[in-house]
Every structure is written in structure tokens, then in C-alpha cells.
């Protein structure tokens, strides 16, 4: 190897970074740029694109029909997120205080269902909530049923919660686990009751984890089209269904692209909020 170090470095850079970023440029950046550019063009009569600039794809978003879809989706995704937080925070808190071995087992047990097929997990809820299913049989035995459980908003929320709960618990766990136990002890030594310690020490310091978990649950809930279809019976149309239909049924690529852009905008906004909160929490802790 007689080549000078500068050349060798350049070769190493190209060999390691070249293939990956080449691939990502073609199959990620170009497709995303294409979607972005479609937002300002007209749709062709039989699908496809007519390269005439227009703003009407954006103004269509203001149509009450679509505003209703957005409002309904936000409501369901927000409800899912709140329930995930209420169930996930105490769980993550308990896991973080388990002794080492049990902690690993508890964490693996949280992640395990997540590694099973998403459609199977959704199907399990069709079986559970069916009019003759186990939940309704139990309600009938108690003289309370049968109640229509499947094909309701409640079924959608249950399915989304089941799909994304681990994504809430994991960031919460890592935020709570990182907290210095001395802070809690100091608070207790200064005479604070456990509840007071929780509200003024533990919770504020784990806020970045809370926000990360909320983003991880809220954004995919908004974009999911399978659960509203299978558990909601197609009665409730969410943003994900709308996007899917624009691309696979109506073939309106421009309007579909605008909707996708809106989902990305929500994601970016929430990630910025999360970054801001974790910087603040970092300052408070030091």
C-alpha cells in the first residue's frame, strides 16, 4: 500500500458511505421529493399527473368532509395516546424498580407481543369483541349484554392501544430508569410525601420520555388504516384510510401527497416539541 493517507481516506469514505447513501438517494430521497412535488400539480384524468401548477390540492384540505376526517382521527389517536400513557407510565415505573433479573423478563414480556404479526394481533380483537366472543359471553352471563363492541370507535382505540402500547412503555422506562435515585431520596429526606416527590421530581424529569412515547403512539395511530377498517368495520374513516384510498382507489396522487405531507408535518412538529422539552428537562436536572 503505497498510496498516500489522504487518498486512502477518501477511498475508505467512498467505499463505506457510497453504496448506502446511493441506495437511500434513489429509493428514499427521490421518492419523497416526488411526493412533495406532486402536491402542487393537477391529477390526470385516469390517475397519473398533469404538470400544471395548482394550489387546489391544499385548499381541498379545508373541505368540511376532510376536516371531519382529520378531527375524528385526531380524537381517536389522542384518546389512544392518553390511555397508553395512563397504563404505560405506572408499568414503566414498576419495571424500572424491579430487581435486575425480573426487570429484563418484564421488559422482554412487554416487547414480545410486538414481535408477532400486526394483522394477527388485530385479528385477535375481532375474535375477542365479536357478538359471540368471550367478552360478550361474559357480559351476557352477568346479564349486561350482548353489547355491540366490534365495529365501534372503542374497538379501534383498543386495537391501536394493543398495537402501540410497547412503543409508549419503552421510552418511558428508559427515561425513568435513568433518573438518579438520590434525587428521589433527597426529596423524601426533605420531608416530601411520595406523591409530592412524584409530581415535582420524577414526572418533570421523565417528561422527555413521556413526549417521545406520545409521539411514537400518536403518529402511527393517525396513519393506521388497517385497524379502522378491520375493527371499525369501515364506519370510521381515518387519515390513514383517506391516504390509502387516494393512492390505491381514487388514484388522486396529488391530494394523497398533500395528506401525507400533513402527517409528516405533524410528526416533525411533535419531534421538535419533544427535543425542546428534553433540552429543558436536561437543564433542570443539572
Amino acid at each position: 500500500m503505497t498510496s498516500p493517507p489522504v487518498v486512502r481516506k477518501a477511498v475508505a469514505r467512498v467505499v463505506t458511505l457510497g453504496p448506502g447513501f446511493g441506495f437511500l438517494t434513489v429509493f428514499l430521497l427521490v421518492p419523497l421529493a416526488l411526493v412533495l412535488s406532486y402536491t402542487v400539480f393537477r391529477r390526470g384524468r385516469f390517475g397519473g399527473i398533469v404538470y400544471q401548477p395548482t394550489g387546489e390540492n391544499f385548499t381541498r384540505l379545508a373541505d368540511p368532509l376532510y376536516l371531519d376526517v382529520v378531527a375524528g382521527s385526531v380524537k381517536i389517536a389522542a384518546l389512544t395516546t392518553v390511555l397508553a400513557l395512563l397504563l404505560g407510565y405506572p408499568t414503566a415505573y414498576m419495571i424500572a424498580r424491579l430487581p435486575g433479573r425480573w426487570r429484563v423478563i418484564a421488559l422482554v414480556a412487554v416487547v414480545l407481543p410486538f414481535w408477532t404479526n400486526f394483522l394477527i394481533r388485530t385479528y385477535a380483537w375481532i375474535v375477542l369483541l365479536n357478538s359471540q366472543g368471550p367478552v360478550n359471553s361474559a357480559l351476557k352471563a352477568l346479564g349486561l349484554g350482548p353489547v355491540e363492541l366490534l365495529y365501534t370507535d372503542g374497538a379501534i382505540v383498543a386495537g391501536l392501544l394493543y398495537a402501540y402500547l410497547p412503543l409508549m412503555i419503552l421510552p418511558l422506562y428508559s427515561a425513568i430508569e435513568r433518573l438518579d435515585p438520590q434525587l428521589r431520596e433527597a426529596s423524601a429526606n426533605l420531608g416530601a410525601r411520595p406523591a409530592r416527590t412524584f409530581w415535582s421530581v420524577t414526572l418533570p424529569l421523565s417528561l422527555p420520555g413521556v413526549l417521545t412515547g406520545c409521539v411514537f403512539v400518536f403518529v402511527p395511530s393517525l396513519g393506521n388504516f388497517v385497524i379502522p377498517e378491520l375493527l371499525g368495520g369501515g364506519r370510521r374513516i381515518m387519515v390513514g384510510n383517506l391516504i390509502r384510498d387516494q393512492f390505491l382507489k381514487a388514484r388522486d396522487y396529488p391530494f394523497g401527497s398533500v395528506l401525507a405531507l400533513a402527517v409528516i408535518a405533524v410528526l416533525v412538529l411533535l419531534l421538535f416539541a419533544q427535543a425542546w422539552a428534553s433540552r429543558r428537562a436536561g437543564r433542570d436536572a443539572s
Binding site: L17, G20, F21, L24, F27, L28, L29, V30, P31, L32, L34, V35, Y38, V219, P220, G223, F225, G240, I243, R244, F247, Y253, G256, S257, A260, V263, I264, L267, L271
Partner: peptide, 24 residues
């Protein structure tokens, strides 16, 4: 920037990647 680009596919909603590739 390259760092962010390498992690982008992992955080991008699957539906967005799906329509991007379909369009492409």
C-alpha cells in the same frame, strides 16, 4: 445531515415510505 438521513427510514411513518415508493 448524513447521520439524520441514515436514521430517516426508521422514523418515517410506514405509510409515507409506502406511497413514496409506489409513486416512484
Amino acid at each position: 445531515l448524513l447521520d439524520a438521513l441514515a436514521t430517516l427510514p426508521a422514523i418515517l411513518p410506514d405509510l409515507v415510505l409506502a406511497i413514496g415508493l409506489l409513486v416512484f
